[in-house]
Computed example of a mutant assay.
Amino acid sequence: MHRRDLLTLGAALGASAALPARAQAWPERPIKIYQGFAPGGNADAIARAVGVELGKTLGQPVVVESQTGAGGTIAAGSVARAKPDGYTLLLATGGHAVAGALYQHLPYKTVADFEAISTVTFFPFLVVVRADARLRSFGDVLEAARAKPDAVSYGSAGIGSTHHLAGELLAKMAKVPLLHVPYRGDAAAVTALLSGDVPFIIAPPTAVMSNIQAGKLRALATTGPQRWPGLPGVPTVAEQGVPGYDVRSWAGLLAPAGTPRPIVDRLNADTQKALLAPAVRQRLEDMGGEARGSTPDEMKTMVTRELEKWTMVVAESQIPRQ
């Protein structure tokens, strides 16, 4: 157990112990976690792993419901409009901040219309090529892009995805031109890479690890600030010529704005407990993530900074706002 985990849990438990009697009566019925992506996908699996453990501590079932579409914004809108009584939560992902930067007319405010509860997990993306590619290192990618402007393309899960914006931020920070080729999801991007339609893709570990292990693909870099434990021999982008580059996706729990602070504090404390459960930590690690909770204020600050970062990338890369 990390010292940070112990300190965060201790603070959260202290807050929980001080709750007034009225708040301690909560919850009296099942709690619902909405997530905005396909059933069986990463977001769904994260919500269910954490939800099962939350249910044990809260003494009420925690039900996960998928409301797919529009990059998670439909589910976010439902939660933003829900009664702020602690019975409706959102499993938000990194796409929550991306959507705030990309969409002009969301029916909610990305930060102001939610109460942050806690982060749950963080995971990097991987820069991946075919195993037989002539690009042997990430440095080769940068050199090729500088030698032939706009001749080096990369695939992503779609326009406005975190993967897409990770590539735009890379091009900006490395000062190299890269041509974005969007696909309909990670599976389509992997297929295009295997077919030789694009020289590299940016994708989460879960989308590419089976092909890396099978010897069909090769990871050149990881996008986080440290090397990813799943591939410790693969350097970060920052290690290979782009200092300061840091793109990770994340997941965390949000509640509607106005949810009473005692309930937020109770949810935070019990989320910390859930993240210490070995089965939850293992499940998140299996998906390429690192189990890591936060205080509500830390999560709110993180989402605010993510929104600012991606708003800048969208503007400077001249990506049309949807």
Rank of each mutant, 00 (worst) to 15 (best):
R4F: 02
L7F: 09
S16I: 00
A21G: 05
P27L: 04
P30Y: 13
I31T: 09
K32N: 07
Q35M: 03
Q35Y: 01
F37I: 01
A43L: 08
G55F: 03
K56W: 15
K56C: 13
T57G: 14
T57D: 14
V62P: 11
T68E: 15
G72T: 12
T73I: 09
S78M: 15
S78K: 14
Y87S: 05
G100Y: 01
T121F: 00
L126W: 06
A133Q: 13
E143F: 07
S156T: 15
A157M: 09
G158I: 01
T162N: 13
H163V: 01
H163P: 01
H164Y: 01
G167N: 07
K172T: 14
V176N: 05
V176Y: 05
H180M: 04
A188G: 06
T191N: 12
V198S: 10
I201C: 11
A203M: 03
V208K: 12
K216S: 12
K216N: 11
A221V: 06
Q226T: 15
P229F: 12
G230T: 04
G230L: 12
V237N: 03
G241R: 10
R248D: 02
S249A: 13
A255M: 05
D265F: 00
R266T: 00
D270H: 14
T271F: 07
A274G: 03
A274E: 05
L276F: 04
R281E: 13
G288L: 05
R292F: 09
M312N: 13
M312I: 09
V314H: 02
P320M: 05
